[in-house]
Design a protein around this nucleic acid. Structure first.
Lengths: 201, 201
DNA sequence: TATAATATCAGACTGTAGTCTAATTTTGGA
DNA sequence: TCCAAAATTAGACTACAGTCTGATATTATA
């Protein structure tokens, strides 16, 4: 065991150290007040190591963001089999937003949202949200099968709309200087959208 | 006349020159490939002048973006008096997105959306959209008066939702590498939202 | 018109993210 | 075990947005 750990690449240890120190500094002082030089100094590392393990300063946040994939899956699996798929979607979205605000925080979300627009690799954001998109797509697929959704809309259509509504909620909240919670903004919005795409009786 | 022009502050002439040169360079090479040094050199100006007239490099784009206020008002005023307010909103939104894509362009929109998240002055974005928000709010007010909207929703609620849907449409489109137009993404989304906030019969 | 206050301008300077190169360590195959 | 290839590391260096200072021009006021 010990040997196995030791045989793990030295690099992984360094990466973890840098990640920890960086996240600690970001939470203490805010992303913009922390420099990469400070991070590498306080983690007894170097610029070379930093950029060996992370593509950019904001990549630190992206790594944390992406690590949380498993949470979405847990929420998804927690739904009872027979629950209305539109209700699942609504609750899933609400829990997602609550999670993003409380576990990730506004600073992180703003940095990621901004960096995604600036990054030339379009994979940046979409990759790290892949498992999230997969879940909402699955839920929407179920809703279509159960004829809960306006039959004029395709799975791609509604899947895009849900993505747009998530992005709109988060971006809007990121801009506002407010104490109101993200989900207090997002829930009415997403629920209105879900009504809008529902099959009319 | 000539005298009046001459009496205009020297500064305004410089500002205009910088703006023109910068926009030309941005459209030729893209925002990120143009440096402020290049802009001031090619406009026979200096860093001092640049930052005298603009708060930042991206402020150039914001100025252009904000100059276009009057367009929204024209569209708004073009609607016949008796048109359904929800239809007005739908058409207004569609024209807005078409305008943003074709007159502003994706590069500009991405830069502005990203800079807004990074700027410490929260006025950055909201200010430059003030007249837009005013119009959508007026349209929503009219819709509420005519009882077209779910009475459980306040004007603030629906106004926020429309803003969220605009931001979501634009942000989502900004991320995607696609030839599809912005309004082909935004229109179904915004229309679904409008259905979702409508008063049920 | 004289002068003080303000606006404009030039360009050197600073801060910081990210790159590059060369040294060192680790690993995997012979 | 030995060595070549690959991974890791250090830190000097570059690029560039934005700041600062001091000079010059313009305007407002007396």
């Amino acid at each position: 065991m010990n040997e196995l750990v030791k045989k793990q690449q030295r690099g992984e240890v360094t990466k973890k150290k840098i990640l920890e120190v960086a996240l600690k500094l970001f939470s203490e002082k805010g992303f913009n007040k922390v420099t990469v030089d400070e991070i590498v100094k306080k983690s007894d590392s170097s610029k070379g190591s930093f950029y060996q393990h992370f593509r950019s300063k904001s990549d630190i946040f992206l790594v944390r963001f992406t690590e949380m994939d498993h949470y979405y899956l847990e929420v998804y699996k927690s739904f009872p089999e027979n629950m209305d798929p539109m209700e699942k979607l609504s609750i899933f979205s609400q829990k997602l937003m609550h999670f993003l605000e409380n576990e990730m925080g506004k600073d992180l979300m703003k940095v990621i949202y901004s960096a995604a627009l600036e990054s030339r690799e379009h994979t940046y954001f979409l990759d790290s949200n892949r498992s999230l998109f997969k879940i909402t797509r699955t839920l929407l697929e179920e809703a279509i099968e159960k004829e809960k959704i306006n039959p004029e809309l395709s799975l791609d259509d509604v899947s895009t709309m849900v993505t747009q509504s998530y992005m709109g909620s988060i971006y809007h909240w990121g801009l506002r200087i407010t104490d109101r919670s993200l989900d207090s903004f997002s829930t009415p919005f997403i629920n209105a959208l879900l009504i809008g795409i529902s099959k009319k009786l």
